[in-house]
Amino acid sequence: MNFKSAMLGSVVVAGALSFGVVLPSAAQTAAVSTDKGLKMYIVESCEPFAKGGRCSLALLTQPASQSAPTNAQTTCESGWVANFMGLEGTVEKGGINRGSAIVCGYQSAEQALRAAVKVCDEQMDGICSRADSINVSWASWNGQAIPGVASDQTLKVNQLPDARTCLSELPLKESADCKARAAVELRSAGIH
């Protein structure tokens, strides 16, 4: 499958932080127009410099009649969205390297999760595959408004209805932070 990707990068103390976005090639030129007239974008969201100036990628829905936001990295098709963060190393061993990617528009959770790991690895020399711990969230977006989230308000993948999340050391450990259903889906996607 061909992927379109965009990368945002910044350096943090004790490691590197990278953000990526990818979507299926079929979604590269198609804009989302839903029954509700909404589009979803992956956007760059940065804190003010006085608060550290850290940037990350987030989701944004807005009416299809509006122009794409200037900070939009891509337009998402309805389907599965995944955000994967892998952390490698420890402070005691010289620092923590972090890699992160967000993907959208996939037909299954498994495809979205695999794509997120692949993009992260491509941009960060394999950090996500070698991670000591992960923080992952994924959900399906059907093109509808998201309850409790105003249009033009950024949101995280875990704010989507029926989102699954897993915060775990690797190998995966089922816990309150990584429920059995989430662990099964991650293992099915090859994340152990």
Rank of each mutant, 00 (worst) to 15 (best):
L23N: 12
A30R: 14
E88M: 09
C166R: 02
C166Q: 01
C55A: 11
G190H: 10
A145L: 08
G15P: 03
V184D: 15
S133N: 05
A189R: 12
V11S: 04
F3M: 14
W138K: 08
P161C: 05
V11L: 03
S137W: 01
Q111K: 10
V91K: 13
A182R: 02
V11E: 00
E185I: 09
A31Y: 10
S168G: 01
S133T: 03
V157K: 06
G20S: 03
N158V: 00
V22W: 11
L186Y: 14
S18R: 01
V157P: 05
A189Y: 12
E44S: 13
L87T: 06
L186G: 13
G9V: 00
A182V: 02
F3Y: 15
P171V: 05
T90Q: 08
T154C: 01
N97P: 00
S78D: 13
T165D: 01
A64K: 13
L57W: 12
S33Q: 13
S65W: 14
S33T: 15
R164I: 06
V157A: 08
I146M: 07
M7Y: 11
Q123S: 01
G37W: 09
A16G: 14
K39D: 10
A139T: 01
K51P: 04
T61M: 15
F3L: 15
M85S: 10
P48L: 12
L59A: 12
S100Y: 00
K51N: 14
D177L: 05
V81R: 09
E88K: 15
A68Q: 15
R98E: 00
A180E: 08
A101N: 07
D162Q: 09
N97F: 02
A176Q: 07
S67T: 14
S129R: 05
S45W: 08
S108M: 03
D121P: 02
G148P: 03
V149D: 03
R187G: 11
T74I: 14
L17Y: 10
I146P: 04
A145F: 04
G52Q: 05
A6Y: 11
A68R: 15
T90G: 08
A150G: 08
G190D: 10
S137V: 01
T29C: 09
L170F: 02
K118H: 12
A64T: 11
L23E: 10
G105Q: 08
L155V: 05
V22Q: 13
L17P: 07
V22M: 14
T90W: 03
P48Y: 09
I127F: 02
P63I: 13
E47R: 14
G94Y: 10
V91C: 11
G99R: 02
E47T: 00
Q159D: 07
E110I: 03
V117K: 09
L160D: 07
L172S: 06
C178S: 07
